[in-house]
Design a protein around this nucleic acid. Structure first.
Lengths: 214, 214
DNA sequence: CCTACCGATCGGTAGG
DNA sequence: CCTACCGATCGGTAGG
């Protein structure tokens, strides 16, 4: 019975996540959540004291999934320059695997900016700090462009990735020949790579056939 | 009295835009709109037959503003390579001038993807076509990177710009030292520029001191 | 996890 | 542009 209860709770969370992502919190009724699970509305309120608590649980559940995935992504990113591709694709992949994550996150940032600010500060800042730190090291070593703003660049790539997954399939129709998601994500990786690293000097310069400064 | 009526209608539109952007369509009641304008709820329904019609009018009003601004932006963009900075800043500026535009647009793409797809196809595709066409010409002339995907690149810059304005002030707190909007937009322009254009060859190569292909 | 019930609020209409 | 009124739906509770 305890397992039954936990199972139902999980199913409520899953359906609520899906519905909140697609229709928003205010656009989703507890009745709809209950129907999707196949129970009656008051039964939802047995597992979650009220609708707001369900919202928080949905968010916490996604955040838990995040905190599980982020370390692997960022350690890949901070290790070597060549692995940026993999790290970027892993981060994008986290949202691509389940676009509801990107949509829910975007909606929550729009609906409750203050709460999300607090949540980000509390749980996610340490990890992004690793990334900007690695970028600064790369700037010191000369591999990363000196004129790049580490914080602004990081934020932009994250924003672009989330935006591409959350609203990409819609905004793609701004173009007569809408690029499919694959093309969008490949281009994101290319843009991020090119804008992050200094270009390798031409072989002749690397070989010292030209004097530096001349 | 006709002017009065038009004035009230405009004020309803303005308040509805503000409230829809901040709280979403489902999260905003006609009562709230009426109160913001300083009239009773049924009076709102004198100017707009129902809530859905108000939504459409808000969207159409924003789109009209758009279609007014986009030509200037894109002709600046398509003219010369050096003007990309100005064009990008103009496009971003359109959303920066009134962040509600970016928020409303993002919400509508999440809430009604099909309707927004249709709206984009109908009204905005000709303009973006100008932009991708100019990019392809730049690729032919060698100023734009050959490996760039014109459609995917354009979409990504637009997505990044809208995302930066719509949720930037929140997502900035993913970082311990949140970059202000100015830094985010400057970095967007830098990233876009670097990822679009081929690097100028070093002066020595341009001067022919090294043979091409060697 | 259910049935039965609650007050509050919703969008919308009648009628002036 | 208003007052008065409508049915429908909302989140939530009682009680089992």
């Amino acid at each position: 019975m305890s397992e039954d209860s936990a199972d139902i709770r999980t199913r409520i969370l899953r359906e609520a996540t899906r519905l909140f992502a697609a229709q928003g919190y205010d656009g989703t009724s507890l009745q709809q959540v209950a129907e999707s699970v196949g129970i009656r509305r008051p039964s939802v309120l047995y597992h979650f004291p009220n609708k707001e608590a369900l919202r928080e649980a949905v968010l916490a559940h996604m955040l838990a999934y995040w905190k599980d995935a982020i370390p692997g992504i960022l350690t890949a990113a901070t290790r070597g320059g060549d692995r940026l591709d993999l790290a970027l694709k892993a981060m994008v992949g986290f949202f691509v695997d389940d676009p509801d994550r990107a949509r829910l996150l975007t909606r929550e940032m729009l609906d409750r900016p203050d709460a999300m600010r607090a949540l980000f500060s509390e749980h996610l800042q340490p990890w992004t700090g690793l990334l900007t730190g690695a970028i600064r090291m790369g700037q010191g070593a000369g591999s990363v462009r000196a004129e790049l703003d580490p914080e602004a660049w990081t934020l932009q790539i994250i924003t672009a990735a989330i935006g591409a997954v959350a609203v990409g399939p819609v905004s793609a129709h701004l173009l007569a020949d809408p690029p499919d998601p694959r093309r969008q994500l490949d281009e994101l990786v290319r843009t991020a790579t090119v804008s992050l690293f200094n270009p390798r000097p031409p072989k002749e310069v690397r070989d010292g056939k030209l004097l530096p400064g001349q």
